[in-house]
Amino acid sequence: MPQKKAVSAPKADGAPAEIVIDSADSTDLKLIVRLDALTTGNAKPKYWKHLLEGSRAHPDQQFFLVARNGTSLTGFIVGEIRAWEFGSPPCGWVFAIAVDPDHRLGAVGSRLFDTVCQRFRKAGVTKVRTMIARDSQLIMSFFRSQGMMAGPFIELEKDLDE
């Protein structure tokens, strides 16, 4: 397997490069942590390692996919099938997606989302959900563009020191 390098720049002519969607492996972890830190400003190596291990232990329930462009990693998505939370029948949850800013508008996110949805369908679920911060306009616009609409649940919370 070729040595993976840091997130790379796009092709000079701006044309979409050959993107391959694949299950993540342990050698991707460093780049996943780096890409997440780049997009969120927060490095969470233990968190991503835990998710990666989960996807390898339960490959029919938990999906950790990456988008590769040659030797570089241009994005990733994490999804999981959860059942009966809040009374909901089994459905797919997407709870992380990131695309290298230099590779956006090249359908990388769409390819990742389509692939995780295929995995969900293959596992027998017919609904996909996610939860997004209300002020995260970019990511919410992305999921809207994939056909997602508001669902039947409303997230509620309170400060416990009240």
Binding site: S141, S145, G147
Partner: peptide, 22 residues
Amino acid sequence: EDSTRATLSSITIDTMLKIVRR
């Protein structure tokens, strides 16, 4: 109102045209 703004600002014209087609 926050929820309304979040919804309206997340739906681009391109996405709206997809919703129209569906």
